[in-house]
Simulated assay, not measured.
Amino acid sequence: MREPQPRPRRDRQLYVPRGEAAHGPYALRIDPRYAGWDYSALRVLDLGPGDTHRFATGDSEWIVLPLSGGCTVRVEGDGEGAVFELLGRTSVFGGVTDFAYVPRDAHAQIASGAGGRFALAGARCERRLPARYGPAPEVPLEARGSGTCAREVRGFAAADAFACDRLIAVEVLTPGGNWSSYPPHKHDEHLPGEETRLEEIYYFEIERGGAGYQRVSPSRPGGADVLAEVRTGDAVLVPDGWHGPSIAPPGRAMYYLNVMAGPGDEREWRIRFHPDHLTEAYR
């Protein structure tokens, strides 16, 4: 039986509040058809104690990333089989986590003895790479920015950190009251050596509840234009445009997961900063 698909978006509403994109077992399911683009996907799965979830990867590669809790990931396909035990973490604010890469044209099972919340970051792709385990100690950590623009970037599937065909994914932790994704930047054109075209999803969690803010401004007439109050479980789609700042509420850290993919021949993250915000402090 063919798996039912989520409804495609029929407007330019790029802010996705918690629950709006829930579908089947997923608290959030953003696939290319829903977003109205070609590559990037994100699913968020809640599992109770002892629960199991199975899915077919189809034409996409996926990374299973624990947001809270741990799990076992079993992968079968093309005559291969693999099992990965993910220790996970207590929450996204508790540090980095291990993860599992699941290739296209495979079947996967996620099982959690104690229960948890798990992100499936995905991208349509052409090559079938082997299933692999990503250890938490090997996740690159970058202290980006300074002062009220300081934040931590966890590049678990950055273009130069972990091999995928098209998928690029990172986590960002922004201290309370700080700005990140700043200066505003974009990656919606193919300019060799300067900029790569990537579709992007932001998924948010706010420490102890509350709300932060996300801005996406047009890079062309009629382009993406978002000013959203974001809470835990919300997402923002970025098909084009200058994105940033992402603003954390005072006293409460903001977490977001970035999932990106695009049509380029090379898997790379090349961006251009908004010239009106690029002061000497950021050059």
Rank of each mutant, 00 (worst) to 15 (best):
R104C: 02
H107Q: 03
H107M: 06
Q109H: 04
S112W: 04
R117L: 15
F118G: 12
A119Y: 04
L120D: 11
L120E: 13
A123Q: 06
E126A: 12
E126M: 11
R127T: 06
R128K: 12
L129T: 07
P130Y: 09
P130I: 09
R132K: 11
P135F: 09
P135I: 10
P137L: 12
E138D: 15
P140H: 03
P140Q: 03
L141M: 15
E142G: 01
A143L: 15
R144D: 03
S146I: 05
S146F: 13
G147M: 09
T148N: 10
R154L: 15
G155V: 01
F156M: 05
A157C: 15
A157Q: 04
A157K: 06
A161T: 15
C164K: 04
C164H: 11
D165M: 02
L167S: 06
L167N: 04
A169W: 09
E171D: 08
W179Q: 00
P183S: 07
H190Y: 13
L191G: 06
E195I: 11
I201P: 04
Y203E: 03
E205G: 04
E205R: 09
I206W: 06
I206P: 01
R208Q: 09
Q214W: 09
P218Q: 12
S219T: 14
G222A: 15
D225L: 13
A228H: 05
T232L: 08
D234R: 02
V236H: 01
V236G: 02
